[in-house]
Write a protein that binds this DNA or RNA. Structure first.
Ligand code: MN
Ligand code: MN
Ligand code: MN
Ligand code: MN
Lengths: 220, 220
DNA sequence: CCACAAAGTTTGACGGTTCAAACTTACAAG
DNA sequence: CTTGTAAGTTTGAACCGTCAAACTTTGTGG
């Protein structure tokens, strides 16, 4: 249906509007996220509007239509199932699978995708802890809060890592903080803007609050 | 490196020149195989010549350079490993995997490809019996002859099916003639242009000589 | 209220891939 | 030879996705 480029815009608009209070995405952020100039994003969004994938008016925010939303979720399902496959079946390192999935997500047919889902026993989260929508586009997942928000002494379970950069993912894994791991918040240095956390079986590690914002946890 | 379109031309030129006595491919056949008009093929071949992937002169045949040959073999390795994966790991029907691989072959990185090769234990033939080049582009495979060339009474082993059309592949599988199967040539009707063959454990089937040209066998 | 910065839009251009249609070349059959 | 046909080439146009650069709008701080 949608071209590879359009699918990438869809994902960007989807995730940007998800975390914007207005529920709309701005051209600047769409452009940044897709790695394109603002002029290009503007041009493409207009084209997507013509295809009824988004609604927007000049100088206003961009919002996915029901059709665009569904299409975005489909791409997300493909992306996350592929990541899961690359880690579980092919044993690739979780720090690099995001980039690989970024290309493959546009090449898998629904036949291959469903075979993949069966092969993996219909997983509901990907290697980073992100929820995998089911074939109908529905996602059932419990939330969580940034590690940064937990008080010293809290026992937590890592649920999700919200930063796909390989270096960050390697760092996180290095200290035992993969999704599913249990950890305890050892200390928070408010002046130092830091937090110290220890995963079970690992040495304690101190990181910036900003970094801890990307580690989503639940109370264990 | 090469675009998706160029990779498809490379494969077409590779296989066409392989089975041409001159070792060269004609524009018409390149166009037909890639599903494009001959004008387009002409344009693209000129561009490929500029990229040193092929050598040719106006109104002459097209031939891959060493670089083009290597690139074509790489695509072929990707295609065939992917087909093998789709059949073996994902349990997709061998009659449809060619079409799926046709898209995926352009999206797998070498990291994914090698992980795939390891996962499949470095297979050397794909589900259709076609040889899979190794990572260095080398292919080690024994030949065979068309089923059509065997005399009545011959005991053969099916080595390869040289026709990717789903209907033909389903027909072949239906009668037990997958690669690896043993069969005996029951009769040849030269007047009827037909051949009757029986795979072990299956009923005999009669098909046109033309069809039997696509079933490559070895003496069993 | 105004000026200015930030965000957004438009335009003209380019590379890639494709088509249709007009044209040219090569070649084989008479 | 001549000539008809099959093969190949060229050209002009289109669409996609992109950029740079000129331009417009919005909204905020002074
Ligand atoms: Mn992508
Ligand atoms: Mn992920
Ligand atoms: Mn292909
Ligand atoms: Mn094959």
């Amino acid at each position: 249906m949608a071209s590879e480029a359009i699918e990438n815009y869809l994902k960007a608009i989807y995730s940007l509007s998800r975390e914007s209070p207005t529920g709309e995405a701005g051209m600047k952020s769409i452009a940044t996220m897709t790695g394109v100039t603002v002029g290009t994003a503007s041009t493409m969004v207009k084209r997507m509007a013509a295809a009824k994938l988004v609604k927007y008016e000049r100088f206003g925010g961009v919002r996915l239509t029901a059709k665009g939303d569904r299409a975005a979720i489909d791409v997300q399902r493909r992306h996350r199932l592929i990541e899961t496959f690359l880690v579980q079946t092919l044993k690739l390192d979780w720090s690099i699978v995001h980039a690989e999935a970024e290309r493959l997500e546009h090449a898998v047919s629904s036949a291959v995708l469903e075979a993949l889902a069966i092969h993996l026993h219909h997983p509901c989260v990907d290697p980073h802890g992100d929820p995998i929508p089911d074939a109908d586009g529905k996602t059932h997942v419990g939330r969580g809060a940034a590690l940064a928000t937990f008080a010293p002494g809290s026992r937590v379970r890592v649920a999700r890592i919200a930063d796909q950069r390989p270096a960050f993912l390697s760092f996180v894994a290095e200290h035992g903080l993969r999704p599913g791991a249990k950890a305890v918040v050892a200390a928070t240095g408010s002046a130092a803007q830091s937090i110290t956390v220890q995963a079970t079986g690992c040495a304690a590690v101190t990181m910036a609050i900003a970094a801890a914002e990307s580690i989503i946890c639940e109370t264990a």
